[in-house]
Design a protein around this nucleic acid. Structure first.
Lengths: 194, 194
DNA sequence: GTCTATAATTCGATAGAC
DNA sequence: GTCTATCGAATTATAGAC
């Protein structure tokens, strides 16, 4: 693997572990086994390297979700499968994590790939929900975009709970609760209250 | 207000805005209008001051939720009211934000107040859900702890979506979606599928 | 492309005067 | 309690040899 590639992958890892503020050029160089001059030859500065790393992570994460969304089963099953996908609860989300960095939020170059990934995931989940509504798996009154945002939020927030407790348990509880709520939403008319 | 107090409040703000790694002693001193010697007189080091600030934030946030949970209306209404409470979507959660800092997760002193706050919120929400189940607002099959975790996760994750888009909109969508899912959960027997 | 040298600045803290 | 001076290390580069 060439140096440029190793630098990007090291930056991806460090952004995941320590965020933009906590990632020093020195640490990137050490992890990539690259010298200082080498890093500044391939990238203009820390922000440029971070940008390349963020674009890469956002693409990888979206691609893996896209595959999950395209499986040959019911829309509800695909959503449940997305929620159940093996995730390293304590490490958190490589991309969601970046939203906590003020430098990333303030710099449109750095924020844009993050925004784009979440927008595309929302869009993908909303389409699945519409599909599920047509199949009678979800109530037609359900707002697809709202529900898609809720699903994404549960996953992102579940990471927060897991790290707070230093345990994967609250992550899995939050996911289980969300699946249970979604499964209760079939389009069949409910008996009237009282 | 005395210096010690100003130091704690400044640290609370900086932890919210920039996290532990991004908060320098110098920045705390400047914001508190305190000298260097002053800060190191009141607190042994950066971690000790951060600890005091985190304990304070966790207490404040829990206290405000506790009041919300004790209002004189139905359990469902109190949960909805908690979800709808005015939040500064783009600033994120003062306490949840800290879970992204590896230094905070690694140091039990710093992580404990965060863990405790989320544990107590989960407990409080789970109790509300049990109360709602007794009142017929929620299905008895619903797992109170799972659902409580889901509710907390939606809020924490909604902040992530908002910051990613640099807009409060996805925050409110995620909350609206969650409320819609919860309101569909009355204990009334649903008509059988088909 | 990669290396070493250098530099200005900041970080997190200590020392000691007042 | 607060202040200034100082410290060694790290940060984020730039310069220029190879």
């Amino acid at each position: 693997m060439d140096t440029r590639e190793r630098l990007i992958e090291s930056a991806q890892e460090l952004l995941w572990e320590r965020g933009y503020v906590g990632m020093s050029p020195k640490a990137i160089q050490d992890r990539a086994s690259a010298g200082q001059g080498s890093m500044y030859h391939h990238f203009e500065n820390k922000a440029a390297l971070a940008s390349a790393a963020i674009v890469r992570s956002a693409e990888q994460l979206y691609e893996s979700a896209r595959q999950e969304f395209a499986q040959p089963c019911s829309a509800l099953d695909r959503i449940v499968s997305y929620l159940h996908r093996e995730r390293d609860a304590l490490r958190g989300c490589r991309v969601g994590r970046l939203t906590q960095d003020p430098e990333i939020i303030a710099d449109p170059q750095l924020r844009q790939p993050v925004q784009e990934m979440f927008a595309k995931l929302t869009q993908g989940l909303a389409s699945l929900i519409v599909e599920g509504q047509r199949a009678g798996e979800f109530r037609s009154e359900m707002n697809p975009e709202d529900t898609a945002s809720t699903i994404l939020a549960v996953v992102q927030g579940a990471y927060v709970l897991a790290r707070a407790e230093n345990s994967a348990e609250p992550f899995h509880r939050a996911i289980a609760g969300a699946i249970s709520l979604l499964k209760q939403q079939s389009g069949v008319k409910r008996a009237p209250r009282k």
